[in-house]
Design a protein around this nucleic acid. Structure first.
Lengths: 180, 180
DNA sequence: GCTGTATCGTCCACAGTGGACTATCCGGAG
DNA sequence: CTCCGGATAGTCCACTGTGGACGATACAGC
């Protein structure tokens, strides 16, 4: 039976399949490749690497430039990755501080809220644009559809968010702004 | 300047405005009222209560039945709540283990994936139904629109998720199922 | 009176976050 | 060529968040 690992460790093992990486590189990859629906901090990466090395899932290569410590997948690491992948995915977890504040709307300052909402809408719009660009880049590159499923989810999510902003009550919409 | 508190503590203070509550009650309220977009575990509640009591934001009342310890908001607690509410909301945070697995779709077992996807779609459908029922209950009760903004977000979110499931590639859809 | 369930709390190990701090290397401006 | 800023790389820590084990008490229905 392969070593049980948590989801973050599992993803890191997945990245290591394509060759050894340093903690820094792993953190960067994680941000780029799964950052839309998973968070991995650098501290966490280094901690996971240490415990995975203890468990023998990963082997530390020779130190390179700038004290860099590349880690490579071991056979046991491969097995642990497969084991993690086959496990039932945990339930999803959303934490949305904006909505948390809205739960106390009776105590919120209206003007402030209006500008906060406007700003957040901007962010969602920007993310949507970025996602759509990535999607069309993938399409141009002929990447098979099933490899952008997470991206598509992101697009749908951002569209949903923007739709929500669009149906805000009159007095919470940005001033002098009729945008849908 | 009011004591700075984290988001979870802020929300708990918000709940306490309506009167003293025990840790258990607070955890239950949190699950019910903000559970869709925030998570609060019981352990966390008790820890926050302890530190908030230390800071004087909350006062422990007389122990009741079953060792229950009701906590009441102090003046400083009120101020801390207002201070938290006025702070800029942190960026949102999504953690979706299903998508994390899909990032490694090349290594996934197709049959297993198909059933996992089907199960998750069911869950989203069930949540959507529940949300819609709550929404119509609120509408019937004449609760003003702006008090269901978070719920509306949830509805849009679930619809987005279901839309995504609906556009899955042919061979990842549930077998013998043409549902949109 | 017994029993199961809900209420209530404690504790702990593990996981995750965010920032401070340090050091090294590299490329470009002057 | 030298200096400097930014990218790469790692450590450490306090705080926050998660999940489950454990124990106790009260209540409701049989």
């Amino acid at each position: 039976m392969p070593e049980a690992v948590n989801a973050t460790a599992g993803a890191l093992l997945g990245f290591l399949r394509q060759g050894p990486l340093t903690g820094y590189q792993l953190a960067a990859q994680a941000q780029e490749r799964i950052g839309g629906y998973w968070t991995v901090t650098r501290s966490q990466v280094y901690r996971e690497l240490a415990t995975m090395a203890d468990k023998g899932l990963v082997r530390r290569g020779p130190t390179g430039a700038r004290e860099s410590q590349p880690y490579a997948l071991t056979r046991a690491g491969h097995a642990a990755f497969a084991g993690w992948l086959a496990r039932e995915p945990e339930p999803e977890n959303l934490r949305i501080p904006l909505l948390l504040r809205l739960a106390f709307i009776d105590a919120l300052d209206r003007d402030q809220l209006r500008t906060v909402l406007a700003r957040h809408r901007e962010e969602h719009a920007a993310r949507l644009t970025a996602y759509e660009q990535r999607a069309s880049a993938l399409a141009d590159a002929g990447v098979p559809e099933e490899q952008w499923l997470p991206l598509r989810f992101g697009i749908r999510y951002e569209r949903a968010a923007l739709g929500w902003f669009g149906e805000l009550p009159e007095d919470l919409r940005p001033r002098g702004d009729d945008t849908q």
